Amino acid sequence: MTVLVRDFLPADAESWVRVRRAALPYMVTTPEQVLSDLADSHPDRHYRLLVAEEAGEVIGTAQVGISHESPKPGQGFCNPYVHPDRRGRGAGSLLLRAGEEHLAAVGATDVYTWVLDEPANSAFAGKRGYAARRPAHFLRLGLADGTLPPLPEPPAGVALLTAADFEDDPRPLFEADAEVTSDEPSDVPVELSDYEDWLASTWRRPGFDRALTTVVTVDGRVAAFSAAQTDGLTRYWSGMTGTLRAFRGRGLAKLAKNDSLHRARAAGYTDAYTGNDADNGPMLAVNRWFGYEICATEVRYVRRLP
């Protein structure tokens, strides 16, 4: 059978999610998220979704675009994934080639990709001129077995709110997200400065659970938060947990995440996932304290386009 690569169509959303969940089961992926990410993407991102199709069946996917929020121009990304039962048919190579061609056409100088840390995947990337950079871990915590640490009483002046409490004005959460994101370890630094883009891509993104996202305030100021994404069924993902610089060293990130996890368990979610840069020791320590265990590792690879 011949494998063909084409642009994603809205009718592919269910198939897209089927492939992504099989290839990367640690992420929270829903059809609504896929459609929203494409529809609400910033023009400067040059975001494109590709599918690999064989005999009318979607067997692979790829997300391609420019990291437009990076202060360094020309930083592209292409993340292809092929269904585990359909590997060895050339779908990954075709998706990557199509993604690179798109990125070159829109001015990318470098292409970054995440590769699961398995010998076959590493060999695939190396053969195509990609060099390994920094690793990151996926971690899982079972919520159904009741092993969460007890939730302490907040100190004086500290309050536990949710993102839903900021419905009228979410800008303080945008500003907190921007500061924490800028300090996150990454090969491609990110500067969040476009509030309207953040509203479209984060605040209104399907799956962002405002009721389960905990916000810690100190004397009325946002000090820390733990953002929650869910699939509406059983899976919960910690999208970002962090503390603003002026409030670090007081255990507020741990407090925020603990509160969010308790809310998630009470809401019926059974599996909590998160991701950590392998060099982010403080956050890895927090997650180990909760009982998270590493379930997979990805490595960031990069290739300079000719």
Results as ranks from 00 to 15, higher is better:
126 G>K: 13
127 K>C: 11
136 A>K: 12
146 G>C: 13
103 L>Q: 07
155 P>G: 04
131 A>G: 11
123 A>S: 14
181 T>W: 02
92 G>A: 09
148 L>M: 10
92 G>K: 00
141 L>T: 02
111 V>S: 03
139 L>S: 11
99 G>T: 00
141 L>A: 13
135 P>I: 08
96 L>V: 06
149 P>M: 03
180 V>W: 06
150 P>N: 06
91 A>N: 10
163 A>Q: 07
161 L>D: 00
105 A>M: 09
101 E>H: 12
131 A>S: 13
141 L>N: 07
154 P>Q: 12
138 F>K: 11
137 H>Q: 09
153 E>F: 08
158 V>R: 09
112 Y>P: 00
134 R>F: 13
141 L>S: 03
107 G>Q: 09
114 W>H: 07
110 D>W: 14
158 V>H: 02
148 L>C: 06
127 K>P: 10
150 P>I: 06
106 V>K: 10
89 R>F: 03
121 N>V: 01
111 V>A: 08
182 S>P: 02
123 A>Y: 09
100 E>G: 05
152 P>E: 06
149 P>H: 05
121 N>L: 13
95 L>H: 05
107 G>P: 07
101 E>A: 15
133 R>T: 10
160 L>V: 13
123 A>K: 15
114 W>R: 00
141 L>F: 11
88 G>A: 09
110 D>R: 15
130 Y>L: 15
124 F>V: 10
110 D>Q: 12
107 G>K: 14
99 G>V: 00
109 T>G: 11
127 K>N: 12
160 L>P: 04
117 D>T: 01
158 V>T: 08
92 G>V: 04
157 G>F: 02
178 A>M: 13
136 A>I: 06
142 G>V: 10
109 T>C: 14
175 E>W: 09
145 D>Y: 02
87 R>Q: 12
166 F>I: 04
175 E>I: 07
139 L>N: 04
169 D>T: 12
173 L>D: 01
91 A>K: 11
135 P>Q: 08
